[in-house]
Amino acid sequence: MENFSVFDIVGPRMTGPSSSHTAGAAKIALIARRIINRPVKEVRFTLYGSFAETGRGHGTDKALIGGILGFEPDDPRIREAYKYAKSRGVLVNIIMSDEPTRHPNTVKIEACDENDRWTEVKGESIGGGNILITEIDHLEVELSGDYPTLIIRHHDEPGVIAEVSHVLAQMRLNIAFMKVFRHGKGEDAYMCIETDTEVNEGMQAILLQLCKCIRQLIVV
């Protein structure tokens, strides 16, 4: 990580005991909750690598449950996350996997919202409470969760990126980071745009209306 903030050094404020195994795990699940954007009624966490090895002792399971319930990584309620899940009627299933993964602290989250829609999110806790979301519904992405993020699925054709960034500029939304991906030439392509300010619902509607190329919009 470069361009550290003082709050990466004296901070973050977090629920212990481990910035990678607890705070990072909570943040991955919290972002998954934001991607789903609805209360979750059933969730399946698959823990890999060091998450599977020592996760239980670090409260990784509680952190993940807390996150999916919408608790911030410094929320003391994480300690009693199982209790909160039970009282909200959320079914929790935790699976330890010995399958190898790219990063040792990886979790796959499969969650079902109240409309019976399943979403799958994969994330890595990369140290110091910092994380990367690497997959959303089998789509490879790369987002940190530190900024409001737009994930746009569109058809791979010339001018789409210019069109979207033009509309964002008109709404005075500044792009902090932007990455583009595609499955193959002329197939489905994706934009992952991290912005400096929140993208409210009105802005999302305008974006969908003006950019006909957008097939799907996920806001984190």
Binding site: I9, G11, R13, M14, T15, P17, S19, K62, D74, P76
Partner: peptide, 21 residues
């Protein structure tokens, strides 16, 4: 100790060293 009990702390620079500062 608070950290190990899943209490709230400030990493400085990490959770494992959060007590000294």
């Amino acid at each position: 100790e608070v950290n190990a009990s899943m209490g709230q702390i400030v990493a400085a620079p990490t959770a494992g060293a959060s007590g000294i500062l």
